[in-house]
């Protein structure tokens, strides 16, 4: 094969996203460590993240219900492979624990980091609690990670 040329290009882009009303209310809540889900009046499903319409019933979601900062670990992993975080351009090194946690009061799960990265110490069904950051700014990374309820 004759010589081939390959060209490096770094994509750096900025975006500006609108949350919509329901996510705005949610975000304002977590600034005060208050978590709220929306509930479908038809199927009774309580949704996180909050959203304007139930995807199953196609009905508007207007009822807000309180959600605990404690929940159940429904699924978990420990990631070893370093991950290039597109938000920063930096590598997120492993191992780090991740989980899907069903907070009490919600019917969906949320995925987040766990403070535990030893597979031997993680199990489906464990009770987990949110650990908040010291400074809250109304975004999901106000949650530092989840820890086991002792």
């Amino acid at each position: 094969m004759s010589e081939r040329v390959s060209v490096p290009i770094e994509m750096v882009q900025s975006w500006r996203y609108s949350s919509g009303d329901s996510m705005e209310r949610f975000s304002n809540g977590i600034r005060h460590k208050r978590i709220e889900a929306v509930k479908c009046g038809n199927c009774q499903r309580r949704y996180l993240p909050p959203r304007p319409v139930c995807g199953n019933c196609h009905l508007s979601l207007t009822e807000w219900v309180p959600v605990s900062d404690v929940g159940t670990l429904e699924a978990w992993t420990v990631v070893y492979l370093p991950f290039l975080d597109g938000r920063t351009g930096e590598l997120r090194d492993g191992p780090y624990g991740m989980g899907l946690i069903r907070l009490d009061g919600s019917d969906t799960t949320l995925n987040h980091f766990l403070n535990q990265n030893d597979p031997a110490k993680l199990a489906v069904g464990m009770r987990m609690r949110i650990v908040w950051r010291d400074e809250l700014h109304g975004a999901m990374d106000d949650i530092l990670h989840f820890e086991e309820v002792s």
Binding site: M11, E24, S27
Partner: peptide
């Protein structure tokens, strides 16, 4: 609520034959 996010990803393109 508005959120501004950047993305930064390196690419490497083959020019081909």
């Amino acid at each position: 609520m508005i959120r501004e996010e950047a993305i930064k990803i390196p690419f490497q393109y083959a020019a081909g034959t």
